[in-house]
Amino acid sequence: MLVDHSVGATTGGLDAAQEPARVAQLVLVAPTPRFLNDDGYLGGFEPADLEELFGP
């Protein structure tokens, strides 16, 4: 069983899809619907924030 919150819920879902034999159940708590802010949506990151986080 994999329990993930926020951005971890998104990555946990991707992990489960790639390795279904390793994840029997998912519990996703308040998953982040989007990573980037956009018109009408604030709750993600600004592109500059992600560039700083991941670097060149």
Score class of each variant (00 low, 15 high):
residue 3 V to N: 00
residue 12 G to R: 09
residue 40 G to K: 02
residue 29 V to N: 00
residue 27 V to W: 05
residue 26 L to F: 14
residue 23 V to A: 03
residue 44 G to S: 13
residue 12 G to S: 11
residue 34 R to T: 01
residue 2 L to T: 11
residue 37 N to Q: 06
residue 19 E to R: 05
residue 15 D to S: 11
residue 53 L to G: 10
residue 21 A to T: 04
residue 46 E to S: 04
residue 44 G to W: 14
residue 41 Y to I: 00
residue 29 V to D: 04
residue 7 V to N: 05
residue 27 V to Q: 02
residue 46 E to F: 08
residue 19 E to N: 04
residue 7 V to F: 06
residue 4 D to Q: 10
residue 9 A to R: 08
residue 16 A to Y: 00
residue 17 A to H: 01
residue 6 S to M: 02
residue 54 F to N: 11
residue 6 S to G: 10
residue 43 G to N: 00
residue 41 Y to H: 05
residue 41 Y to K: 04
residue 54 F to S: 09
residue 21 A to N: 07
residue 19 E to C: 04
residue 3 V to W: 08
residue 51 E to N: 11
residue 5 H to A: 00
residue 11 T to P: 01
residue 52 E to D: 12
residue 50 L to R: 05
residue 47 P to I: 06
residue 12 G to F: 11
residue 51 E to V: 15
residue 34 R to P: 00
residue 55 G to A: 09
residue 23 V to Y: 10
residue 49 D to P: 09
residue 25 Q to L: 09
residue 44 G to Y: 14
residue 48 A to S: 14
residue 22 R to I: 14
residue 24 A to I: 01
residue 7 V to H: 03
residue 43 G to H: 03
residue 19 E to P: 01
residue 30 A to S: 14
residue 44 G to K: 13
residue 2 L to A: 07
residue 49 D to W: 10
residue 43 G to C: 01
residue 20 P to A: 01
residue 46 E to N: 08
residue 17 A to C: 00
residue 6 S to H: 05
residue 25 Q to F: 09
residue 15 D to A: 13
residue 12 G to Y: 12
residue 20 P to G: 06
residue 29 V to H: 02
residue 38 D to E: 14
residue 53 L to K: 14
residue 16 A to W: 01
residue 2 L to P: 05
residue 18 Q to S: 03
residue 35 F to P: 03
residue 56 P to V: 11
residue 2 L to I: 12
residue 36 L to I: 07
residue 45 F to Y: 15
residue 17 A to E: 04
residue 53 L to V: 14
residue 23 V to T: 13
residue 56 P to N: 10
residue 10 T to L: 11
residue 6 S to L: 03
residue 1 M to G: 06
residue 7 V to L: 10
residue 48 A to M: 12
residue 13 G to W: 10
residue 22 R to M: 15
residue 7 V to T: 10
residue 49 D to M: 10
residue 52 E to N: 11
residue 22 R to N: 12
